[in-house]
Design a protein around this nucleic acid. Structure first.
Length: 937
RNA sequence: AGGCGCGUAGCUCAGUUGGUUAGAGCACCACCUUGACAUGGUGGGGGUCGGUAGUUCGAAUCUACUCGCGCCUACCA
C-alpha cells in the first residue's frame, strides 16, 4: 500500500469497476426487496451540497441493505423541470438575438432536447463521483416514452372520473413567463410600499367615501366598495353608489364580513378580477343587480398577459379609459395616481409594508389573473392520503413533520396543473371547432372513439402539465406502470423516501395521493426528512450570496483563485462581487484541499442527526479526512504484519490474548450499535461509533497491544493476534463501507483474502452481524484495568514532564488478589506501554519511598521520585485530584443522607452511589496520606 | 395570527425511556519526529447545559412562563 492516503488515486477506478460489473443492479436471491427512489434532479442541473448530502444518506442506506442481503434497488432518473429548463433554453435563444416565438414550438422543443442531450450528463457524472450505487441500467427521464405513457394514463383516467376538470378562474399568473403557476410556486415576501387613500365620490353628491389600497392601478376594474355590515360609520351608505373616478362608471357600496373595520379606512375597493379575496367577495354579491348589470357581471379584467392595461373589446365601448391602454402596471399606477391627484381625489399616501407575491422562477410580481386552466380536484385524493399517515401506513422521520403534512392536506386547494409553456407533457386534450373537448391517448384514438368524421378539425390543447404532475407518478412510473411488471411487483411500495422538507407539499403529498389512487397502496413506508446544508456562517447557500460550494470542489480541491472565479463569474449584480470575494478569502484563505469523496460522505453522515439543518464546517471535513488516513495507516500496519505470514489458517493452533478477546468483544458491541443506528436513520451515531471504535480502541489500544504479542516468542499467540488483527479490520471495513465506500473497498481487496473472503467486492459482502456470544465481559474488564494502569502512569509522566521514552520503575501497594493476578497476566503490556523498567509489589506496611502516586481502584501505583520528580509539582498534582474528589463527595453524601433518596430511588441506583462513595472516600484517604508524606520531605 | 424547530466548551455538534464526575471533533497549552500514521502520539486547560419558576429523592432531559434565533403556513385591501 502507498504510504500516504490519497483519495484521488483510489476513488477514480472503483466506481467504474462497480458500475461495469453491474453491482448496482438488484441482486437475485431470496432476500426481501429494498427500494429507494431518488428524488429526480433537474436533468440540466448540476450537483449542489444539498444533493450530495441527500445522496450520501440514500447511498449509505442502500449499501447497508444491499449488504444485508436484500434485493436492493436505488432507482435513478432525472426530471425535465418544465419552467426551469425552458428558461435556460430561452436564455440561449435570447443570446442569439431571437425569442422562442421566432423558433416556433416544434423547433424550440427540438432545441430543448438538444440542450438536454448536451448538458444532461453533468449531474449524472457528478452523482457518480459521490459514489452513489444507483442502478444506471434503469435510468429514467420524466419525459421518456414510458413515463409519458404513465402521465397520459393518469390524466385520462382522472379526467374520466371527473377528478380533472377545466375551469375559468383566478390563477397566479406570471406576467414574465406568461404562464399560470401553482400556489406553491409563489413566494410572498414583505417589501416596502405605499398605501394610497383615494376618494370615491358618492353618487348622491353628499361627499365621498375614502378607500385605502396598495394597488391603485386595479381601480379601473373595481366592481364595488365594501364595508363591514356592522360598521356604524358607513352603515347608512349601504345601497348607495359611488362614482368610480377616471372611468365614469357607477359602482355599489356593499356589506361584507371580509372587511376589517380596523384596517385602513374600513372601506375596501373590490376588484374581483385582480384579487383573490375580492373575487370571493364578488362571488357572494354577484347576484345583486347593481353588480350583475355591470360589464362582465362585474368581473372586469383590466390587464393583458404582460400585466399592462388592455385594450377595449368591440362590445365594451370605453370600459377601459383610452389614456391608460398599453401602460405597464407600474406606469399605469403612476399615471392614475397623478390623475387622481389632479382631480383632488388622492387624499394621502402612507408608507406601508406589504407582502409581495413573486414567482419562484422569474422573480416577477405574480398577478391574480382570470384564465382557463386545468385542475385536479384534490379533495377525494387527499382524504386517503391523510388517512395513510394518520394510521401509520406512512411514517415521517422525524415524526413531527406529519403536522406540516396534515396542515397542508387538510386545507388543500384544487391543483392547477396546466402551464402555458412548451417544454413538458402536452395536455392530451383536443378541441373541435365548436369548442367541445375530447381527452384521449392521441388524436387518432379520439377520432375512433368518438366516431368523428375526417372533416372535423381537432386541435390539441396548447398547454403542458405542471412538472410535478409527472414527478407525482415517479414511484410507480419508473417501475413500468401502467404495465404490470415484475419490478412493480418486487419494489412497490418502496421503503423510504429521503427528501428535504421544502418539497413535502410539491412532491411527497402528491406522490402519496397518486400512489394510493393508482396503485392502491402507499408509495413508500417512511419519509425521512433531512435538513438543509448551510455554509459555515449558517447561511443558506445560494448563487446570489456567492456562498455556493460545489461538492466536487471539496472532493478534488480547488485553488482560491479558481473558487473566486467560480463564485463571482456571471453575476447578475456585479456590485456584490466584492463582498463575496472578501467572504471567500476569509473562509478559504488557501482554497480547498482535496479531501476526497469518502471524507465528504463521512462528514455528511456524521452531521446527519435527524431534523436539523447542518452547517458545513471545513474543520470537520478535514478531521474525517484524517480519519480516513488513520484507517489507511492502520490497514498498512496490519498488512505489513500479516501478508505472506501464517495467520492462523485452519489446522494450526492459535492462541488468543485477552486483548484479542477484548477487541472482538468491543467490535461486536459496536456492530450492534451501528446497525441499530442505521436502522433508526441515525447516521451520525453510526459514523461516530465507527470513528471512535476505529481510532480510540482499535488503533490507540489494540494495535499497540498487538505489537507486544507479535514481539513474543509464542508462535500460537502470534498467529492468534494476526488473525484477530485481520478479522477485526476486515469486519470494520464492511461495517464502514456504506458510509465510506471507496477506501473500504480499496483496503478490503487486500485484507479480504487474508480473512479468507473470496468475493470480488466488498459491496456485495454480508454486513457484519453482531454475535453476542463473542462479547467477553471478563476480557473487557481486564483490558479496562490495563488501560487504567497505563493511563495512571502516563498522567504522572505528562504532569511531571518526564519524557515518554524514559523507563521508570513502578512500585505497587494495597492491591487485591485480583490485582495481583492481573498484574501477573498483563505484566508485559504494562511494562511496554507504560515504559516501566520494573514493577514491584510493596506490602502495605512497608514504608514506600517518596513517589508520585496514581490509583487503580484501591491499588496504588508509585513512581519513585528519586531525582526526577519535582516535589512541588507532585504536591500540586495531588492537590488537584484531592480537590476534585472533595468537590464530588458532599454531593454524593448528601444524596445518601437524603431519606427521600434512600426510600424512593431504585436499589441499583442506591448501590451504585454507595460504591461510588466508598471508592471516592478511599481514594481521598490515599491521596491525602500521600500528600502528607510528600510535604513532610 | 397559527404551527414547527433550535439555543449544551471559543467553533461545529452528540447526549436514547429523568439516575455514575455532561461527551466528541476542531481550535488552544505543554511535551514527543518511537520503525502504521505529524493527515501523528501523550498529557492538560475549558461548559452547569439561554433565563425564571415548578414537578421529583434526583432535571441538560418533564411542565409552565420568558428571552433570543430560524423556518413554515395564512394574511388587511
Amino acid at each position: 500500500m502507498e504510504k500516504t492516503y490519497s483519495p484521488q488515486s483510489i476513488e477514480q477506478n472503483w466506481y467504474q469497476t462497480w458500475e461495469e460489473k453491474g453491482y448496482f443492479a438488484p441482486q437475485e436471491g431470496n432476500g426481501n426487496a429494498y427500494c429507494i427512489m431518488i428524488p429526480p434532479p433537474n436533468v440540466t442541473g448540476s450537483l449542489h451540497m444539498g444533493h450530495a448530502f441527500q445522496d450520501t444518506i440514500m447511498d449509505a442506506l442502500i449499501r447497508f441493505h444491499r449488504m444485508m442481503g436484500e434485493k436492493t434497488l436505488w432507482q435513478v432518473g432525472t426530471d425535465h423541470a418544465g419552467i426551469a429548463t425552458q428558461m435556460v433554453v430561452e436564455r440561449i435563444i435570447n443570446a442569439e438575438g431571437k425569442t422562442r416565438h421566432d423558433y416556433g414550438r416544434e423547433k424550440f422543443i427540438e432545441k430543448a432536447w438538444q440542450w438536454k442531450a448536451e448538458s444532461g450528463g453533468t449531474i449524472t457524472k457528478q452523482l457518480r463521483r459521490m459514489g452513489t450505487s444507483l442502478d444506471w441500467s434503469r435510468e429514467r427521464f420524466t419525459m421518456d416514452e414510458g413515463l409519458s405513457k404513465a402521465v397520459h394514463e393518469v390524466f385520462i383516467s382522472l379526467y374520466e372520473e371527473g377528478l380533472i376538470y377545466r375551469g375559468k378562474r383566478l390563477v397566479n399568473w406570471d406576467p414574465v413567463l406568461h404562464t399560470a403557476v401553482s400556489d406553491l410556486e409563489v413566494l410572498s415576501e414583505e417589501e416596502n410600499g405605499h398605501m394610497w387613500y383615494m376618494r370615491y365620490p358618492l353618487s348622491n353628491k353628499t361627499g365621498h367615501i375614502l378607500v385605502a389600497t396598495t394597488r391603485p392601478e386595479t381601480m379601473l376594474g373595481d366592481a364595488a366598495v365594501a364595508i363591514h355590515p356592522d360598521d356604524e360609520r358607513y352603515k347608512h351608505l349601504l345601497g348607495e353608489f359611488v362614482e368610480l373616478p377616471l372611468t365614469g362608471r357607477k359602482i355599489p357600496i356593499v356589506a361584507d364580513e371580509h372587511v376589517d373595520p380596523e384596517f385602513g379606512t374600513g372601506c375596501v375597493k373590490i376588484t374581483p378580477a385582480h384579487d383573490f379575496n375580492d373575487y370571493e367577495v364578488w362571488q357572494r354579491h354577484r347576484d345583486l343587480s347593481a353588480i350583475q348589470d355591470q360589464p362582465h357581471g362585474g368581473l372586469i379584467n383590466v390587464f393583458t398577459v404582460d400585466a399592462a392595461i388592455r385594450e377595449n373589446q368591440e362590445d365594451e365601448g370605453k370600459l377601459i379609459p383610452e389614456k391608460y391602454i398599453g401602460l405597464e402596471r407600474m406606469e399605469a399606477r403612476k399615471q392614475i395616481l397623478a390623475d387622481l391627484e389632479a382631480e383632488g381625489l388622492l387624499e394621502k399616501t402612507k408608507d406601508h409594508k406589504l407582502m409581495v407575491p413573486r414567482g419562484d422562477r422569474s422573480g416577477s410580481i405574480i398577478e391574480p389573473f382570470l384564465t382557463n386552466q386545468w385542475y385536479v380536484k384534490v379533495g377525494p385524493l387527499a382524504k386517503p392520503a391523510i388517512e395513510a399517515v394518520e394510521n401509520g401506513d406512512i411514517q415521517f422521520v422525524p415524526d413531527n413533520w406529519k403536522n406540516t403534512y396534515f396542515e397542508w392536506m387538510r386545507n388543500i386547494q384544487d391543483w392547477c396543473i396546466s402551464r402555458q409553456i412548451w417544454w413538458g407533457h402536452r395536455i392530451p386534450a383536443w378541441y373541435d371547432q365548436e369548442g367541445n373537448v375530447y381527452v384521449g391517448r392521441s388524436e387518432q384514438d379520439i377520432r375512433e372513439q368518438h366516431k368523428l368524421p375526417d372533416d372535423c378539425l381537432l386541435k390539441q390543447d396548447e398547454d403542458v402539465l405542471d412538472t410535478w404532475f409527472s414527478s407525482a407518478l415517479w414511484p410507480f412510473s419508473t417501475l413500468g406502470w401502467p404495465d404490470k411488471t415484475q419490478e412493480l411487483e418486487n419494489f412497490y411500495p418502496t421503503n423510504v423516501l429521503v427528501t428535504g422538507f421544502d418539497i413535502i407539499f410539491f412532491w411527497v403529498a402528491r406522490m402519496i395521493m397518486m400512489g394510493l389512487k393508482f396503485m392502491g397502496e402507499v408509495p413508500f413506508r417512511e419519509v425521512y426528512v433531512h435538513g438543509l446544508v448551510r455554509d459555515a456562517e449558517g447561511q443558506k447557500m445560494s448563487k446570489s450570496k456567492g456562498n455556493i460550494l460545489d461538492p466536487i470542489d471539496v472532493i478534488d480541491g480547488i485553488s482560491l483563485d479558481d473558487l473566486l472565479q467560480k463564485r463571482t463569474a456571471g453575476m447578475m449584480q456585479p456590485h456584490l462581487a466584492q463582498r463575496i470575494e472578501k467572504q471567500t478569502r476569509k473562509d478559504f484563505p488557501e482554497g480547498i484541499p482535496a479531501y476526497g469523496t469518502d471524507a465528504l460522505r463521512f462528514t455528511f453522515a456524521s452531521l446527519a442527526s435527524t431534523g436539523r439543518d447542518i452547517r458545513l464546517d471545513n474543520g470537520r471535513i478535514e478531521g474525517y479526512r484524517n480519519f480516513c488516513n488513520k484507517l489507511w495507516n492502520a490497514a498498512r500496519y496490519v498488512l505489513m504484519n500479516t501478508e505472506s505470514q501464517d495467520n492462523d489458517l485452519p489446522g494450526k493452533p492459535g492462541e488468543f490474548s485477552t486483548a484479542d478477546l477484548w477487541i472482538e468483544s468491543r467490535l461486536n458491541q459496536v456492530i450492534d450499535d451501528v446497525t441499530r443506528a442505521i436502522n433508526n436513520y441515525r447516521l451520525d451515531l453510526a459514523a461516530q461509533a465507527i470513528y471512535e471504535f476505529t481510532w480510540n480502541e482499535y488503533c490507540d489500544w489494540y494495535l499497540e497491544l498487538a505489537k507486544i504479542s507479535l514481539q513474543s516468542d509464542n508462535q500460537a499467540l502470534q498467529r492468534g493476534t494476526r488473525k484477530t488483527l485481520i478479522s477485526v479490520l476486515e469486519t470494520l471495513l464492511r461495517l464502514a463501507h456504506p458510509i465510506i465506500p471507496f477506501i473500504t473497498e480499496e483496503i478490503w481487496q487486500r485484507v479480504g483474502p487474508l480473512a479468507g473472503k473470496s468475493g470480488e467486492t466488498i459491496m456485495l459482502q454480508p454486513y457484519p452481524k453482531a454475535e453476542p456470544e463473542k462479547i467477553n465481559r471478563g476480557a473487557i474488564n481486564e483490558i479496562n484495568w490495563v488501560m487504567d494502569f497505563i493511563l495512571g502512569v502516563r498522567r504522572i509522566r505528562g504532569e511531571m514532564n518526564i519524557p515518554p521514552g524514559k523507563p521508570l520503575p513502578a512500585l505497587l501497594q494495597d492491591g487485591t488478589e485480583h490485582d495481583k493476578l492481573l498484574l501477573e497476566k498483563h505484566n508485559v503490556y504494562l511494562k511496554k506501554m507504560a515504559r516501566l523498567e520494573s514493577i514491584t509489589w510493596l506490602s502495605s506496611q512497608h514504608q514506600a519511598p517518596e513517589s508520585a502516586t496514581s490509583l487503580v481502584g484501591n491499588m496504588k501505583i508509585l513512581i519513585p521520585m528519586a531525582g526526577l520528580i519535582d516535589k512541588d509539582a507532585e504536591l500540586a498534582r495531588l492537590e488537584k485530584e484531592i480537590h476534585k474528589i472533595k468537590k464530588d463527595l458532599p454531593r454524593i453524601e448528601g444524596k445518601l443522607n437524603n431519606p427521600g433518596f434512600v426510600e424512593k430511588a431504585p436499589q441499583v441506583v442506591i448501590e451504585k452511589e454507595k460504591e461510588k462513595l466508598a471508592a471516592l472516600q478511599s481514594s481521598l484517604q490515599n491521596l491525602q496520606e500521600q500528600h502528607k508524606k510528600i510535604s513532610a520531605l
